[in-house]
Structure formats: C-alpha cells, structure tokens
C-alpha cells in the first residue's frame, strides 16, 4: 500500500517511496462512490468501485454509455473527487488534497487524452505540445524544444509542427493530444474514448501508437472504450456497468 502521507504543496513528491517497482499500484480505488445531485434526486454515477491499476499497465475500461467510465476517469484524473470511498493516485489520497495540490498532481503525474482532442485552437502543434512543459516551468527553452521535437517525431507529426489544430485531420489531432499527454513523461495517461471520433482505421493506429508508447516509455495507460476491437489491444479490460465494476477479478488482476 502506498504511504498516506500527503504533501499538498508537492503532491508527487511521495511517489518514489510510495510505490516502487514495475508492478506496484499506481491507481487504487476502494469503495469509490460518486453521486451527482439532479434537482431533488441524487444520481449515483459510481456505486462503490474497487480497482487497482499497476505501473506500466495498459488497461481498458469497457462499458456502455452512462455506465460510469468517464466518472471513474474523472476521479482518477483528479478533476473530480469521490463522494465516498478512497481514490489514491500515485500515492496520494485525492480526497485529502487541496485544489492547488490536485492541480499540481495533474500537472506532474498525469496526462490526458480526450475524445474530442481538446487542443488549444490558437496554438500550433508545437505550442500545444509544449504547453504542459511551460506550465511545469522546469525546462529551459532549448530542452523544451528538444523534448517536443522528440515526441512529435514519435507520433509522426514532424511536418505539421507549425500547423494549427483546425488544419489537421482528426487522427493527426489525436496524435497531437497524445504527444501533449506524454511530453511531461507522466506516470499515468488517462484517455476517455480516444478513438470515438475517429474512423476505425485511424482509431487502430492511435491505439497502436498508445500501446507502443506504453512499451517504449513505460507509461501507464487507462482508457475507456466501447469498441471491442480496441479492447483487444489492452493488457486487461475492466468492465463497468451501472456504476459498478462487473468483473472483480479483472479489476484486481
């Protein structure tokens, strides 16, 4: 189990001691619940989820629309906090972190890939990918440029570096999003339906790319999908329905 020590000002500082080794838990949900008030009623999006994702895994979350995949990713991605239960990311109980510490944890430890790409329209490919590095403020201009060029090369967008998102195809945009998610070398990349807005061929290529980066960079991936073909690429598939993990064994594989 990771340490419960929380350091809001430097949330990622405990990661090394919290869990070392390739098979240690990077994400752990214990009885995680999420309720949303809807008028006078309360909608339970997650009804007590237990899940462990280990370092280096390539895990798919599968389930129909409304099953709770996105809510689960939101909790793991520290953009939301659980109503009850524990969500531990990189050794930190997210329920105990301040807004500032959650932001810092997202910046330092997590990468996001969105279904609709969510690139910043006014920045070109290079600038979009460089953006998280700028927010981190750790690297100089030269180092940033080198890091960005390296990742751009890996996603095959060297020729598009100066283009804006509107000038790219859907597949190219998602490649930019992947590069942006990976450029800070995060410990975990979360992807919410990363292939949903792409044709099947492009979607396959994107998943292949994610898988390749999972192997070469050792980055942990947790992504949601309802496409059976995409699921075949995963180390394991966690099935979720009505806010519960159906296959408990898969959840603790």
């Amino acid at each position: 189990m990771p340490s419960k020590t929380e350091t809001p000002s430097s949330p990622t500082g405990a990661s090394g001691s919290a869990a070392s080794g390739a098979q240690s838990a990077l994400v752990e949900l214990v009885g995680a619940k999420k309720d949303y008030p809807l008028g006078r009623t309360v909608v339970s999006a997650l009804r007590g989820v237990d899940l462990v994702v280990r370092r280096g895994e390539f895990v798919a979350l599968a389930g129909p629309s409304g099953s709770g995949k996105t809510t689960l990713l939101n909790l793991v991605g520290c953009v939301d906090v659980a109503t009850a239960g524990t969500v531990r990311v990189d050794g930190h109980d997210t329920g105990r972190l301040s807004e500032k510490a959650l932001t810092q944890l997202r910046l330092e430890a997590l990468g996001f890939i969105f279904q609709s790409f969510n690139l910043i329209a006014v920045l070109d490919v290079f600038q979009n990918i460089e953006f998280p590095l700028l927010l981190q403020g750790k690297l100089g201009k030269g180092e940033r440029a080198e890091r960005v060029r390296s990742i751009v090369e890996k996603v095959g967008l060297t020729q598009q570096m100066k283009q804006r998102p509107a000038e790219l195809s859907g597949g190219q945009r998602q490649r930019v999003a992947i590069a942006r998610a990976l450029v800070t070398r995060p410990r975990l990349v979360l992807a919410d339906e990363p292939t949903a807005n792409l044709d099947s061929e492009t979607g396959e290529r994107i998943i292949d790319l994610m898988r390749e980066l999972n192997h070469t960079e050792g980055t942990t991936f947790l992504f949601s999908t309802h496409d059976p073909k995409i699921m075949t690429h995963a180390d394991r598939v966690v099935h979720i329905a009505d806010g519960r993990v159906l296959d408990a064994a898969a959840g603790h594989a």
Binding site: G77, T103, L107, P132, A181
Partner: peptide
C-alpha cells in the same frame, strides 16, 4: 468552457 476545462485538467492553475 471546454478550453478552460482542458487547460485546468492538464495542470493550469486558477491564477494562470
């Protein structure tokens, strides 16, 4: 709104 959410998600602080 989506752009703001994206920037916040990838680690942009409220101050920025």
């Amino acid at each position: 709104t989506r752009e703001i959410g994206t920037m916040r998600a990838i680690g942009m602080s409220r101050g920025r």
